[in-house]
């Protein structure tokens, strides 16, 4: 699995948001995408996932251009996004949400995948018949990730998984992401939570105003004086 983004220009409506992004994710990595609100992180995700169509540039997955493919094709290829705000189906039960995770991909192995996900998130199985809209924020995040895993992702994009969670749950969420990666899953982690993301990531990109401002290994970036000043106020 490799994902390459080359000179990606993209807009959100009439507003140009991304001005030539280059990045790469390789098999087995956790790559973090850091940046403040409005830097263009979600726009980048949604261009990769086929929700929006880029203005120009190329997105290449396993050697094949996926630029401008519709979202269902991108899912079929194995790029699964767990979106910001979870976007679970609030009117449906937890079990139905998980089932729909395997709507396009992993359809024939739904039962095995469900079993595996329940072993990762035992809490979800206690709430199988509860409507997703009535879950707490942390549970909804677990459900959203579980729904993503049902599609047997080759690359899992996590958009702000720690948003709105209590500090204790944030800690738990990052541990879980590291654990999923240890089991072999490639992860693109989009976060505002700079320190905790860098702790589990292999590499990171920092975007500002729609361009890559900094990039490198997580160990280097964690000591970068500019990054510490901008994002941690140190």
């Amino acid at each position: 699995m490799t994902l390459q983004v080359r000179q990606l220009h993209a807009a959100y409506g009439a507003m140009k948001v991304l001005h030539g992004i280059d990045l790469e994710i390789s098999e087995g990595e956790i790559v973090a995408l850091l940046g403040s609100n409005g830097a263009g992180k979600s726009t980048l995700n949604n261009n990769i996932s086929g929700i929006y169509t880029p203005k120009s540039g190329d997105i290449i997955f396993d050697g094949q251009s996926i630029t401008g493919l519709p979202s269902e094709k991108v899912v079929e290829l194995g790029i699964i996004q767990v979106p910001e705000g979870r976007r679970v189906f609030p009117n449906m039960s937890v079990l139905e949400n998980l089932h729909l995770g395997g709507y396009r991909r992993g359809r024939n192995r739904r039962d095995q995948n469900l079993e595996r996900i329940v072993s990762v998130f035992p809490r979800l199985s206690e709430r199988f018949n509860q409507l997703a809209g009535t879950l707490s924020g942390g549970e909804q995040q677990m459900l959203a990730i579980g729904r993503g895993l049902m599609a047997e992702p080759k690359l899992l994009i996590l958009d702000e998984p720690s948003l709105g969670l209590s500090p204790l749950l944030v800690e738990e969420m990052f541990e879980l992401i590291a654990e999923l990666n240890k089991q072999g899953l490639s992860i693109f982690l989009v976060e505002q939570n700079v320190m905790q993301s860098l702790e589990i990531a292999d590499r990171a990109y920092v975007i500002e105003n729609g361009t890559v401002a900094l990039s490198g290994s997580a160990d280097e970036l964690i000591d970068d004086p500019e990054l510490r000043k901008t994002y941690l106020g140190l």
Binding site: I51, P83, R87, L100, G101, R104
Partner: peptide, 23 residues
């Protein structure tokens, strides 16, 4: 049915539906 569930998903959460690969 899967299609029925997809209809209910699209009714309340179009973006989420797109991201599980529902056309």
């Amino acid at each position: 049915t899967d299609t029925g569930k997809a209809i209910r998903a699209v009714a309340k959460e179009r973006q989420g539906a797109r991201l599980v690969g529902i056309n």
